[in-house]
């Protein structure tokens, strides 16, 4: 069944059926109802790909996800998809698996499939790689920061200030020897976290101990290995600030395996506030990254661009900076219950 069959059955032109599908307000009510009834009866659905060719629009967007196994990315992805679905768009989710070649390949494929826009989460690509989207006039939005991609609209999180607050929290509890375990990616965000951490230590008059700053893969396993390194140190830190909750889970696991009590003998603080951080024992003190909101806003910026492109308006790239907030729970030995209330 195609549009011609519907037109024939209704005794109208193809153009009239097309108007019912695309600009129903321009068709007389009686004609519209008649055609709609036939469409329903014949269970006709328009060919979306062909539609894309005609209208230069496929009602699809691409979403690049660094790693689908990381729950943080799932929450961001849900935010993007929620907005896309509301706009009646389908989202192609591409699992990059931290592989730059895979991300490039996906970008090419999305462009071939004529998506109307692409959202990148902590993209591995630089402006040079991304320009193929610009050449096709496909809007691009960034969520989170990995590399410098200044020319695109971005939703970022103030990781530096959040890391500063998290480190200050450990200092206020009375910890002095504070280690930082950071993931290799996303680069820019983790650099900001290290800056925040160092600033808080300096303000407290504590010299930064470079031995305490260790880089690992951003996984639970990476966290475990990092935790093990701290345990084996001659002078162990009293607290570990991990740049993600996954790393923090690994650190806690390593402590448990070595009979080191968290938080009594070792405080652990994470970053992200993925849902599981409230379920592990002890409940993880962390920094709440507004994950779903990042996704929602990233998608909104993208649809702003798609819509302004349709209207042929120009708009300057927008940047939205979001706040990340300390979420005090039980893994750092904090005594004041009021801190957990707000």
């Amino acid at each position: 069944m195609n549009i011609r069959h519907i037109a024939q059955k209704a005794g109208v032109s193809v153009a009239t059926v097309s108007r019912v599908l695309n600009h129903p307000e321009s068709v007389a009510t009686a004609t519209k109802e008649k055609i709609e009834a036939i469409i329903a009866q014949e269970e006709y659905t328009p060919n979306w790909f062909a539609r894309g060719l005609n209208f230069n629009k496929t009602a699809t967007i691409g979403l690049m996800i660094p790693h689908i196994m990381n729950p943080m990315h799932m929450e961001i992805a849900k935010g993007v998809e929620d907005v896309a679905q509301h706009k009646d768009y389908t989202t192609f989710m591409c699992n990059v698996e931290d592989n730059v070649e895979k991300e490039k390949q996906y970008l090419e494929n999305l462009i071939k499939r004529r998506v109307d826009g692409i959202v990148f989460i902590s993209s591995l690509l630089g402006e040079k790689d991304l320009c193929i989207a610009d050449e096709q006039g496909i809007p691009v939005v960034m969520i989170g920061e990995n590399r410098e991609t200044l020319k695109y609209p971005v939703v970022r999180v103030d990781c530096q200030n959040a890391a500063y607050e998290a480190t200050k929290h450990l200092l206020e509890i009375g910890h002095h020897d504070i280690a930082m375990l950071y993931g290799k990616k996303p680069e820019i965000e983790n650099r900001q976290k290290i800056e925040g951490y160092k600033t808080a230590l300096k303000e407290a008059g504590i010299a930064v101990n470079d031995e305490f700053i260790i880089s690992v893969e951003n996984t639970i396993e990476g966290g475990y290995l990092g935790g093990k390194k701290y345990i084996d140190m001659e002078k162990r830190p009293q607290a570990v600030f991990a740049t993600s909750d996954l790393l923090a889970f690994g650190v806690i696991d390593a402590m448990k395996d070595n009979d080191i009590s968290v938080p009594k003998e070792m405080a652990v603080i994470g970053f992200d506030n993925i849902r599981m951080s409230n379920l592990i024992e002890p409940k993880l003190t962390t920094v709440e990254k507004p994950l779903h909101k990042m996704g929602v806003l990233g998608a909104r910026l993208l649809f702003d661009m798609i819509e302004s492109k349709e209207k042929e308006e120009k708009q300057p790239p927008k940047e939205i900076l979001l706040q990340a907030k300390l979420k005090i729970r039980k893994s750092c030995g904090h005594k004041e219950r009021i801190g957990e209330m707000f």
Partner: peptide, 13 residues
């Protein structure tokens, strides 16, 4: 909202 840019974006919407 929690930051100026987040608030301004919402207000303009």
């Amino acid at each position: 909202a929690h930051t100026p840019s987040e608030l301004a974006y919402l207000a303009s919407k």
